[in-house]
Amino acid sequence: MKRLAVLCCALAACGSSGDGDLVVRDPWFRAPPPFANTAAMYAEINNPTDVDDSLLTMGSPQCRSFELHRTVTSDNVASMEAIGDVGLQIGAGESLALEPGGLHGMCLGLDDGFEEGDNVVVDLQFETMGRVTLSVPIQRR
């Protein structure tokens, strides 16, 4: 797991500018069942810089579309909210958790062969840091 985090940090560094870098820890897709149309991506994004940033969009050549969503659970009823153009703010020194049952990236219209063990190229577009490209493993957890 540590090696993965380091790898992702290295990848994140490639896509960022300036001295401080956003750190994307432990990104993963939950392995979707065969023939599934959607898959959720999770990660923890840390902003150790002294500049506020925002995650604006996500995209992948292996997904027809990619949306930022938030699962909101109220009285045990789960519903999904799309995150608008404003994106998700990550204040200076703060972290943003994309996690099951909460914020997540939703890949729609999966490529064939979106399977456990594979890696998916995902671009994250940040307001300040620009584009960060990750190789995200598909895992069962």
């Binding site: 069942p33 599934a36 149309n37 959607t38 969503h69 789960a78 049952g101």
Partner: peptide, 9 residues
């Protein structure tokens, strides 16, 4: 089945 987050979780 098209549920991306809650149901698979």
């Amino acid at each position: 089945a098209n549920c991306p987050d809650v149901c698979p979780t």
